[in-house]
């Protein structure tokens, strides 16, 4: 039986207690974010022996967060009207607890995996280049290409409004041919560096080096403000992995497997 969360402060106190008890979790939010989650009025809980599930209702799926006491196994997940997505961030070098098998027994199956890579700015040589930021009139084309190119559950796709804000703030670079969109690169600035959020190339323009040029544009555009360049890449995408390795990106040891329970 799912119960709606209503008290943000009690939620945060519970989280801190569970973290302090050394419970396994995929909940890595700050106090501020945790309070916002409850305020959004879309978080539910399911308690079981040895742990708890928190379900956050997104538009077309439920995002699953868990806390699990040591030596305990995840409970079988309930049947919900939308798919359940479990996204974890793990250290590649450490044993995965709960294991993938434990999660399979709970009803999930592997969906995809990403790994994080970084490039330190001091290790990059810059060549002068002309870059093009997206303009407001490209919003629909970029939004469409984004939704055509990325899987819908764990790609953190922005809303159209938030994409427009990023376009106006020069966070979206484009590659054009005769004013037609060939591809785009969407990035953001975090404290630790510049993060590549999304990059996509039109199907007819793939294999022509458009993605490579966009990555060069991004590094050039951010050379003076970012001390580090970061990105998450799918581990089942060898061409992308090869491209980033050629730029000098290195894995930083974090992997993010995603599992799914379909309806």
């Amino acid at each position: 039986m799912l119960k709606k969360m209503i008290d943000g402060q009690a939620f945060w106190r519970e989280i801190a207690k569970r973290l302090s008890n050394g419970e396994s979790t995929n909940f890595f939010f700050s106090q501020e974010d945790a309070l916002l989650m409850v305020q959004r009025d879309k978080i539910y809980r399911l308690d079981f022996d040895g742990g708890v599930y928190f379900f956050v209702k997104e538009e077309t799926f439920y995002q699953l967060y868990y806390f699990l006491e040591k030596e305990k196994s995840p409970e079988v997940l309930p049947a919900l009207a939308e798919p359940i997505i479990l996204e974890e961030v793990l250290l590649a070098a450490k044993e995965r607890i709960p294991s993938e098998d434990n999660w399979k027994k709970a009803g999930l199956k592997p969906y995809l995996e990403r790994k994080r890579m970084y490039l330190t700015t001091k290790n990059v040589s810059f060549e002068e280049r002309k870059i093009t930021f997206a303009s407001e009139k490209m919003l629909d084309d970029i939004f469409y290409l984004m939704h055509e190119s990325f899987e819908p559950f764990s790609s953190a796709l922005p809303t159209k409004e938030s994409l427009l804000t990023d376009i106006l703030n020069q966070k979206v670079l484009v590659s054009l041919q005769n004013q037609e969109l060939l591809g785009f690169l969407h990035f953001g600035n975090m404290k630790q560096g510049s993060m590549l959020w999304h990059i996509a190339v039109m199907p007819q323009a793939r294999g022509l080096g458009v993605g490579n040029r966009l990555v060069k544009d991004w590094i050039f555009a951010q050379r003076d403000v970012a001390k580090k360049f970061l990105l998450w890449v799918r581990t089942d995408n060898p061409p992308a992995l090869r491209m980033y390795e050629k730029f000098g990106f290195l894995p930083d040891g974090r992997v993010a497997p995603v599992m799914i329970k379909t309806t």
Partner: peptide, 21 residues
């Protein structure tokens, strides 16, 4: 936040302490 959460767990285990909210 991922590092801090991971670190809290590791510190509690290694030093046998409780880190409150």
């Amino acid at each position: 936040s991922f590092d801090i959460v991971s670190l809290v767990g590791e510190l509690c285990e290694a030093y046998e302490i409780q880190i409150g909210a």
